[in-house]
Design a protein around this nucleic acid. Structure first.
Lengths: 325, 325
DNA sequence: CATTTTCATGTTAGCGCTAACATTTCAGGT
DNA sequence: ACCTGAAATGTTAGCGCTAACATGAAAATG
């Protein structure tokens, strides 16, 4: 910065201002400075800037997985808001582990992020305390809470309930639940499923197939086969995500079971393939991209110190009835 | 750091050493310091550390897309090597745009990354020059080159040629090419396709369907329909990726064309759904995860200043013949 | 027991930048 | 010509940390 200044005949601080507070430097001088910056190939040092200004212009984003389209879509939304605002994202992959999440928070806190975006609400109390102590605002994504934390999402439980009710309305009587990963969101969908079935007097715990391993299509196929062996009267299954559902669909085809006549299948998320398999998959469309944009906007407002009237944004969900049910 | 030192009765530098050069502090003192760090909730400031030490312990990763599983898998490989080595990733999404790539490089250079991992080889000369000038080592991923740049990947052209030859060997005579996005890798696969067909005396430019828009399954379906209308004698199609291929497959089913009897379909990448659609998709399996790990390892070696004998790692590919051909 | 070597810890200075205050310049009014 | 105040630019100090050298204490050596 000093060298650029020398080249133009001004002091370093004027170069700094030309770059970051353009209105404080006269137009002629500023264009001369920018030209010199370009000519000399000067690259500002963000560490020094962060150190001197106590603002990193960086936001930490913690998501459970990079291989799950759901979070990638959310990330895209976040980026589309943060980038234009001059913020950079630090992406931390928690691998669905609370321990790793805490560890990542610690590690990334060293970057002094101006804010944090987190997936889910079930962090250990230590998590919020750490952020509190550092005075870093956070927004929680994907789900809702009434405990005062800022959040953007939809009710996972209501969504689980809604899709189960859809299956009931289509005349299904023995509706199974297929769950993998068993993170908090899946468990809340399971709660919704139970609520709907209990209300209809049709709940049977034996019809729940839960596997803590990450979901794959193979797992969906295996689980469906197992389920039908144990419960031949089962006539529908709500899979906690589309991957499992597509695997289940393939298994039905392999077993020669007509979908939806003999077996109805519902997924969750409405990923691209859901509309493409045959028969097209009934599922719940979730506003992933918008969760990203809204969460990022809410966070930026918090960083700017704007006290927001609404701390909890419910973006809803949509049951997508298709041929698989 | 000074406060932690005060709490234990040592100077700040000893705290620094206890954290980052443990062998230089006696065991008893170190454990006392670490205890105080924990008790006081001290979080080191990475900016200050980077500024003082001139090393950021950060690697910049530039990939064209976050929604493409191919790059996510590569990212996972990179992370698995970089994290244990104490490096953090900065992920830049170039959206397949050379302009954005250059812009991202500029922006992220402000973090003074210790190294850069880039997808592809076709950056403007300015790109390599900028890195050169800053003395930052780079590794290029996904493809191969003989121009001396460090790279880890496989020959996109050979892979395109191999899968096309596979279709020829299965007796196909009018083999179309379906391409989207048209980034350098797709164009190289196209080159391989042309090479194979020309060698067999069966090349026909009219059978190439190229669309610069990002690929979707819908696009694959549309392109196949269009292709068959214009060229009813077409009996096979090599799609530049699995998404297009799955869309094409669905279109065939919709049109009542038997796959593979009437129409053979081949994809590229061997993503999870390729083995799950019916019929299972013939495709080319690519070593995405390993490209990530090997590229990261090569970069770390370069950062450490180890002159590597091999600058170009060819990890190969595998044609996966399945029922769709 | 003096001398050397090793190990553990401390002191000083500075990384590149910006906040806060200080100074200069200049347009506009008297 | 002088004054005033706003706009443009400069000076000083310090953000939190570590490199490099300095010191002191303990261990090894003859």
């Amino acid at each position: 910065m000093h060298d650029v200044g020398l080249a133009v005949g001004v002091s370093a601080i004027t170069v700094s201002r030309a770059l970051y507070s353009p209105e404080r430097v006269s137009d002629t001088l500023r264009s001369k400075i920018l030209e010199a910056v370009d000519r000399l190939g000067y690259v500002p040092n963000r560490s020094a800037r962060a150190l001197a200004s106590a603002r990193s212009q960086t936001v930490l984003v913690l998501i459970p997985s990079l291989t799950n389209t759901v979070f990638i879509d959310t990330l895209a939304g976040i980026e589309d808001v943060l980038r234009p605002a001059g913020y950079q994202m630090l992406i931390g992959n928690t691998h669905y582990s609370a321990g790793e999440e805490m560890q990542l928070l610690r590690a990334y806190l060293e970057h002094q992020p101006d804010g944090v975006l987190v997936t889910g609400l079930s962090q250990p109390p230590e998590f919020a305390q750490t952020l509190e102590r550092q005075g870093i605002p956070a927004v929680y994504m994907m789900d809702l809470t009434a405990d005062g934390r800022r959040c953007v999402g939809f009710s996972q439980e209501d969504a689980g309930e809604a899709i189960t009710r859809h299956l009931l309305e289509r005349g299904r009587r023995r509706i199974a639940f297929m769950g993998a990963q068993l993170d908090e969101r899946v468990l809340k969908r399971l709660d919704g499923y139970r609520k709907a079935l209990r209300a209809a007097g049709r709940y049977d715990a034996a019809l729940e197939d839960l596997d803590p391993a990450p979901s794959t299509m193979q797992m969906g196929a295996d689980a469906l086969t197992r389920l039908l062996q144990a419960h031949p009267d089962c006539d529908a299954v709500f899979c906690c995500n589309d991957d499992l559902a597509i695997g289940a669909l393939a298994a039905c085809q392999r077993l020669g079971l007509a979908v939806p006549q003999r077996m109805a299948i519902a997924g969750f998320n409405d990923l691209q393939p859901a509309g493409w398999v045959t028969p097209p998959l009934t599922t719940v469309a979730t506003p992933r991209y918008r969760i990203g944009t809204e969460a990022a906007r809410l966070l930026l407002a918090s960083i700017a110190g704007e006290a927001d009237a609404v701390t909890c944004h419910d973006l809803g969900f949509t049951v997508m009835p298709r041929a698989s049910s």
